[in-house]
Amino acid sequence: MSALGRQRWLGPAMFLPAILYVVALVGVPFVLAFLYSVGDVKVGSVGYHFVGLANFKSVLQSPTFLRSLRNSFVFTIASQVLVLLGANILAMALKNVFPGRRFVRFLILLPWVAPVSIGSIGWKWILDSLYSVINWVLIRFHLVNEFSPPMYLGEPKLAMISVILVHTWHMLPFATVIILAGWTAIPKDIPEAASVDGARFFRRLFQIELPMMLPIINVAVLFGVIFTFTDMTVVYILTRGGPYDTTQVLPSQAFFTGILGSDLAEGAAISLFLVPLLVVVAWLMLRTAHKAEVT
């Protein structure tokens, strides 16, 4: 065998273990999810019978599912809009050097780097039905009734808003640092040239800088959408999907049905509704990456 011929098996020998591992634990369950969704698998059951689209039919007829589906979109869109607005403002505030910038950055990052389940339990305490510090302040300023203060996690609308805001809180730092990376990557001479040409702050921002930032903002949004649409942690910890399933989202409902309810097949059918969005995001991401490669 030739000297370089030996390298021909060296490459595969080095990357195949990793790929096989990922295929076994991502690819195989991914396919199984499809199989389960058209079968009758329950926890403890052994056999497998093909039942066609029966699971999807029963899922689609359940009002809880339709509500979860709607909630998932509301949850994702609302929190991502807030994240995008906040992250752009915050990134602009952070892009210039000022004393204490490192500390502020650390503080602002904490919600992202702390385990999300831990952060959510912190919020659960802040939003507590009895000891909520928010209510304490509102009562002080006589903004709410002392004897029936709002129950942030107990009333459907407030619960949904709480879930959205806590998720926004969690995702904001991530989007901020990505956009910040974009800001620092803009060649300084371009905005400088624009200001020499007489462009004021807002003209510079909207006509020069933001368009240049668009690819990176895309990245932040795409990751944000994926991480939000498929997340169940915030909902699970804050409300368990309640009150009365009003804050249920697709992933949490899949968990309650498939794992706690032992109906693997129907759970799988519910979680498969995540797939179309994943495909769209993956496609958009490849396009962004491709464009970046071309330019």
């Binding site: 990793a18 690819g27 199984l32 994926i226 993956a282």
Partner: peptide, 29 residues
């Protein structure tokens, strides 16, 4: 080592990172 298509495999692997636990947890259990 793998040349040009190594990059494509890399992107494919990265895309699997986007497949969320909430899609896989039922079969994985």
């Amino acid at each position: 080592i793998t040349g040009r298509w190594g990059g494509h495999v890399g992107i494919a692997i990265f895309l699997t990172y986007l497949v969320p636990p909430t899609l896989l947890f039922i079969p994985l259990s």
